[in-house]
Design a protein around this nucleic acid. Structure first.
Length: 571
RNA sequence: CGGGGCAUAGCGCAGCCUGGUAGCGCAUCUGCUUUGGGAGCAGAGGGUCAGAGGUUCGAAUCCUCUUGCCCCGACCA
């Protein structure tokens, strides 16, 4: 391609509403332009990249045995009413009427349509398993679209849905999709992790999110460096530890006056201990209308997701009102402790080995020091109550936890029978009996992958595309071409030769100064660059630089093709 | 949806407080000089100041309403 026929439309200044790097660079490089909130046009440059991502997804899905289809983006309301989601989905579903005043929505996802297709089309267990996918435009009327393509309202998604007679069969396809997803993101050259996800209200056995790792990611991920373990920070469980015996010389429990100390910081400061030496007591509402005390180490944070799943705790989690506390114990918040309290107590696992700790005395203005389990109060029930932290043991027992940030680009899910039951999708089994289909679904935010790739691959000069997604593999930058026939004819020849070999090459045939060329090609992130100048040609060399290297090197003209094929094939 | 903010040329902004009929930088076009990291000089084009209403002799500027967009919260590929 020639720059003269493929306008770059680059911007030196960043539009003021672009917050994140990918959004800024996509606008500056001329990949996209905004039409409205969460609505973007893909310009020629951006579309090349999007198409590359799609092609990789398509190839790997086909490879894994999925079949491509294309469903309408506009869907009749009846199907959504049948599944119950017309009411459930809420305002994120863009609804509309046609000229006959029939109700429709713009598809945010396609479980209903695909289930309808399959229930009408598939009659026999012999046609299963079946895995169908599409790459298509979705619309979700997000409350707050932001970060450009990263969270837009209209976006490109690959969504696949599989149908099975048995759960075992679903598990097999699920495993195949897990593999295919890993293959897709590896081929794209991305650093990513498959993360255990909450199966939530939908149920089912397993769900994994695929996250591209980037500092700007919205999700915190706890992962283990020495194993495959990875999970959302809120979901990563902590394991119980063994009890340890109290040492004989432990000091006697003492009541101390702490009139001004209500928070953990104040308490630890006034008693000259660390926050980790303190135990904090949180009172939350119980299902039976009473209260439950939750004990945490002073430096830990309560994980509400975990807490509200515990037996007896009211969900959604709500803290005790002042009146409730008064009814339970005559003590203001700030001095509450687990001794002689008449409600059930749940303590975090990290407190199993806690000794000699500080806690509230249940008496205004006083705390207790040198408190120990068994000796001073009975051991409470222990449970997993807090967020996992850096350095905690990995739940799979294989090492310690680190935390990084990620951008969710894919999600695979064992759906089970949720939709097939609602929509009555079944087949006849071997015995001629009706069996409800078991389903899985598998999504990739293809347009989001493009943005996430930038979040992971950029520098001060612009985007650094992994070769698999780069809009072009190599740039030819001729220096002073209009003054030098030698440069011109050499570049033209080289350009044609590379095209012959099927290399995606971009020649900058503008009458532009070198600085403009360098800046533009760096900004749009072409992985390889050849600079051709008259002086170098006379020496029989030209200059090569990889986008990711600091410095360039010379390549002799007569070995150029060999060198280039080495460089391009090493990707 | 709640809280905050913005709307002036393709992009980034000034002008508004204190009304007098719109300006700067980048980009675009022309010419000359430049030519290895977003050049210099000279010139040109481009704005119904988001829209509607009001106040006024006169409104980008003051008032009212409307619309669009952005940021902070819960959701998601």
């Amino acid at each position: 391609m020639r720059v003269s026929k493929f306008p770059l439309n680059t911007l030196k200044e960043v539009p003021s509403d672009a917050e994140v790097v990918s959004h800024q660079l996509m606008l500056r490089s001329g990949m996209i332009r905004k039409l409205g909130a969460g609505l973007y046009t893909w310009l020629p440059l951006g579309l090349r990249i999007l198409r590359k991502a799609e092609a990789i997804v398509r190839e790997e899905m086909n490879q894994a045995g999925a079949l491509e289809i294309l469903m309408p983006s506009v869907q009749p309301a009846e199907l959504w009413q049948e599944s119950g989601r017309w009411e459930q989905y809420g305002p994120e579903l863009l609804r509309m009427h046609d000229r006959h005043n029939r109700e429709f929505c713009y598809g945010p996802t396609h479980e209903e349509v695909i289930t309808d297709l399959v229930r009408k089309q598939v009659r026999s267990y012999k046609e299963l398993p079946l895995n169908l996918y599409q790459i298509q435009t979705k619309f979700r009327d997000e409350i707050r679209p932001r970060f450009g393509i990263m969270r837009s309202r209209e976006f490109i998604m690959k969504d696949a849905y599989s149908f099975h007679e048995t759960a075992a069969c679903l598990e097999q396809t699920y495993a195949d999709m897990y593999q295919a997803y890993s293959q897709i993101f590896s081929r794209m050259g991305l650093k990513f992790r498959a993360v255990d996800a909450d199966t939530g209200s939908i149920g089912g056995n397993a769900s994994h999110e695929f996250h591209v790792l980037a500092d700007s990611g919205e999700d915190a991920i706890a992962y283990c460096e020495t194993s495959d373990y990875a999970a959302n920070v809120e979901l990563a469980p902590l394991l119980a530890v063994a009890e340890i015996a109290l040492s004989a010389e432990a000091a006697v429990m003492t009541e101390v006056s702490t009139p001004a100390a209500k928070t953990i910081e104040q308490v630890s400061a006034s008693l000259n201990v660390t926050a980790a030496d303190c135990v904090k007591t949180l009172l939350v509402k119980a299902e039976d209308g009473g209260l439950i005390a939750l004990l945490l180490r002073g430096d830990h944070e309560l994980n509400t997701l975990k807490a509200e799943k515990l037996e007896g705790v009211l969900a959604p989690l709500s803290f005790a009102e002042e009146d409730d506390i008064k009814a339970l114990i005559d003590c203001p918040p700030g001095f509450i402790g687990p001794l002689a309290i008449s409600c059930p107590i749940l303590a975090d696992y990290s407190l199993i080995q806690q000794q000699d700790f500080v806690c509230g005395a249940n008496k205004e203005g006083f705390h207790l020091t040198h408190v120990n389990w068994t000796r001073d109060l009975p051991r409470p029930t222990f449970a997993d109550l807090r967020n996992i932290e850096i350095g905690d043991p990995s739940p799979d027992g294989q090492g310690t936890i680190k935390i990084c940030r990620g951008i969710e680009v894919g999600h695979i899910f064992q759906l089970g029978k949720k939709y097939s039951e609602r929509l009555d999708a079944n087949v006849l089994d071997q015995n001629g009996k009706k069996t409800t289909l078991t389903m899985g679904c598998y999504g990739i935010g293809v347009s989001r992958v493009v943005a996430a790739t930038i979040e992971q691959n950029f520098d001060d000069h612009g985007i650094c595309w992994p070769p698999a997604l780069a809009p072009f593999q190599i740039s030819i930058l001729p220096m002073k071409m209009e003054k030098s026939d030698k440069v011109r004819s050499y570049c033209e020849q080289l350009y044609n030769d590379l095209i012959q070999q099927g290399v995606e090459v971009l020649i900058d045939d503008r009458k532009a100064r070198p600085g403009i060329m360098f800046a533009d090609h760096d900004l749009i992130g072409i992985p390889h660059r050849l600079v051709v100048s008259e002086q170098n040609l006379e020496k029989g060399v030209l200059e090569y630089k990889s986008r990711s290297d600091e410095d360039s090197r010379e390549i002799a003209v007569n070995t150029l093709m060999d060198e280039l094929s080495k460089i391009l094939n090493s990707n």
